[in-house]
Simulated scan of single mutants.
Amino acid sequence: MQHASTPQVLSAAATGMDRFIGRYGLCQDSFFGTLGLDPETLSAPTRQMDLGTYCRMMEYGAERTGDGSFGLAYGQDFTPQMLGLIGYIATSSANLGEAAQNLATFFPWHQQGTTTTLCQQDGLCWLSYRIDPARVAERRQDALVTMGMYCNVFRHAAGPGWSPELIDLEQPDCGDRAQIEAAFGAPVRFGQATNALVYRKADGARAMPGADAALRELLCCNLRSLGMAQAEPDTAARTAALIRENLSEPGLDLDFVAERLQMPRWTLQRRLHDAGTSFADLLEGERRRMAARYLAVPKLSVSVIAERLGYSEPSAFTRAFRRWEGVAPATYRRSTAAPLRH
């Protein structure tokens, strides 16, 4: 199956949207008509819809309802089974740990233009999710939807009172921190490199009430057969995501990433080489990108930024930054700072 020129998502991701907007008193014909959507498409869970349109639908919902956390409300209203094949794959997994791994592994078959990873460290696990910003710019509500859906997978097994340890969000705080933290029962960090639900590794041992290995395998085959992703996920994108999420870790190297991707070191090297890149290139690229982002935050000192980027000394960061931009970090910060309003 040929991929569409724009990333697609299975329509199951919009299950129940017609009923949900009805709670706000919105006219379904007007709502979907403005977006150029046929409600019939949303009623067929294995049909594809444009990912950008899906994200615009969430942003438009927030605009029309005046609810800045519209996506969160929709995501938390979403049972895992409503997500279609990938939701049933999660609920038929043996336990929560396997469910989280299956979500990270199979999301490319459910939604294109997206990187999902599962990382473990010091007794905590990060189930991360990020749409490529070059493909979709407005995606705040989508992030809230997905974190809410992830949370509901865990509550399916652990009960409605379960809470993650932390929620990370790419987007800035829009004044609804208290509402989001109350919904998850956990602290939220805004302006992060990716969106993530952080949970205790011990929670991964909780059994899923509908575990069924044979059903899970059948569902995985069915999802793959839809042709929404390549037979092999984008290793370079997943490697870049892991680097971005672990830049400050002193042990961040090729072995670190290979272990978390559950593949031999040499296999990772070969796949990156085949993709025309390397671990060193990806590491430098992520450091350069995040350096510019951090320098836009006045309260972060150069030494703190150097530490966040994984440099042992601020001087090493300064040398690297001069090589990238031709100027020192402090000079770059002054030249790109927005003028003060008087």
Rank of each mutant, 00 (worst) to 15 (best):
C55I: 05
T331A: 12
R47E: 11
G251A: 13
S278I: 10
A205Q: 07
I86F: 02
D255A: 12
A13V: 12
R260Q: 12
R200S: 08
R323C: 01
G68K: 09
R130S: 13
R216F: 01
G84P: 02
A158D: 04
M208V: 05
Q112D: 01
L51S: 13
G66F: 00
A73S: 08
L72F: 06
E313Y: 08
A292H: 11
T116A: 07
V153G: 04
A292K: 14
T65N: 06
A143M: 02
L282D: 08
R177P: 00
R293D: 08
R293C: 03
F321P: 02
Q48T: 12
R177A: 04
L268M: 15
G52V: 08
A240N: 04
R189F: 02
I21C: 03
E313K: 15
E259C: 09
Q112F: 00
S248Y: 13
D173Q: 12
A137Q: 15
T336K: 15
P164F: 00
C125K: 02
A258R: 12
G75V: 07
A280K: 15
Q179C: 10
A237M: 12
G227S: 11
A73L: 07
R135P: 02
R140S: 08
A231Y: 01
S278W: 01
L72H: 09
E284Q: 15
P329Y: 00
S43H: 14
T34N: 15
A292F: 01
A338E: 10
I243K: 05
L295C: 11
A207D: 13
G36L: 05
E325K: 14
A292V: 10
L127E: 06
A104C: 07
L247N: 07
F279T: 09
P329K: 11
P314D: 04
A291M: 03
A296H: 06
G68Q: 04
D142W: 00
A214Q: 09
N152A: 12
W126F: 05
P209Y: 04
N152M: 07
L252S: 12
I167M: 07
L118C: 12
